[in-house]
């Protein structure tokens, strides 16, 4: 079976000798969604850079069955779109249009196709009206969406997103979640890292708990419900789950753990009844 992403025994140390990843292995099916969780310095960003062939450790990384190596980089980058944590690192051209066209042009797409893809990507992130804006004139939330558009315009089958919602206001956060859900519905495989545990159930079906090595891998609802496991890694449970697990421990609730607002509402109603 061909996986969208297949990582096997991946290890990486920084030039100063610090170990970032140790024997990391996991697979992700096409169209799947995976959240990488872990404390600061756990190696999440380093792992993500491997998926696009931007750094190379020992072990192997396969994208849609293709081994990531020097000879396959152009093809890998055609399939894997990346969103970096700081959008200012990603917006490099004098205008938004040129920035979003940068990837498709590098791929050698004909100009009419470039224009179609740029228009689609800007429309998808809701920045079609800012086509001629310079990146410095955009707000942080708009920059984040613009950076996402620069990856989307390459029409990648896999999206790798490093903290896609960090530093965003609530509305921008909701917009990004909505957009990612739309992409996931259109079978785009997504791998993302986040420190916002409350968003994880909304963004990913699976979770990979990482702290230089794989600590746990499983369904989001299972992993995010394990308080001890999360706290050992300096993380916490999502707010609703945390509250109702406490109620369960006190013997006041015995239903399924809620992760979303509507689930929490149902759970609350069951307690009141």
């Amino acid at each position: 079976m061909t996986y969208a992403v297949e990582v096997e025994d991946l290890s990486y140390s920084y030039p100063n000798g610090t170990t970032a990843l140790r024997d990391v292995s996991f697979q992700l099916d096409e169209g799947g969604s995976l959240a990488l969780l872990g404390p600061n310095g756990a190696g999440k960003s380093t792992l993500m850079l491997h998926l696009n062939g931007l750094i190379a450790g020992t072990g192997s990384v396969r994208i849609l069955g293709q081994l990531v190596r020097k000879e396959s980089l152009q093809s890998i980058r055609r399939n894997v779109g990346m969103l970096f944590q700081d959008p200012d690192d990603q917006l490099i051209m004098p205008s938004l249009w040129e920035d979003v066209a940068f990837g498709p042009r590098n791929l050698g797409q004909p100009e009419d196709e470039v224009e179609r893809n740029v228009a689609w990507a800007l429309q998808a992130v809701g920045l079609a009206d800012h086509i001629d804006s310079s990146p410095q004139s955009l707000s942080f939330g708009q920059k984040k969406k613009a950076a996402l558009a620069t990856a989307l315009s390459m029409r990648p089958k896999i999206l790798v997103l490093d903290e896609p919602t960090s530093n965003l206001d609530p509305r921008s956060k909701r917009d990004v979640v909505k957009l990612l859900n739309q992409l996931q519905r259109s079978n785009v495989t997504t791998i993302l890292s986040t420190h916002d545990v409350n968003l994880v159930p909304l963004l990913a079906e699976d979770v990979l708990l990482l702290n230089q090595e794989v600590i746990a891998r499983g369904k989001t609802r299972k992993i995010m419900g394990e308080r001890e496991l999360l706290e050992e890694q300096g993380l916490e449970m999502p707010l609703f789950a945390d509250l109702f697990e406490e109620l369960r421990e006190e013997g006041r609730y015995n239903g399924p753990t809620p992760f979303t607002k509507s689930e929490a509402k149902d759970a609350l109603e069951s307690i009141i009844k």
Binding site: R77, V80, M82, F84, D89, I92, G103, N106
Partner: peptide, 14 residues
């Protein structure tokens, strides 16, 4: 920043 910029450019086929 220039290192991160280069990575972001490479990720888009530069």
């Amino acid at each position: 920043r220039s290192e991160r910029m280069l990575q972001s450019m490479l990720s888009r086929g530069y």
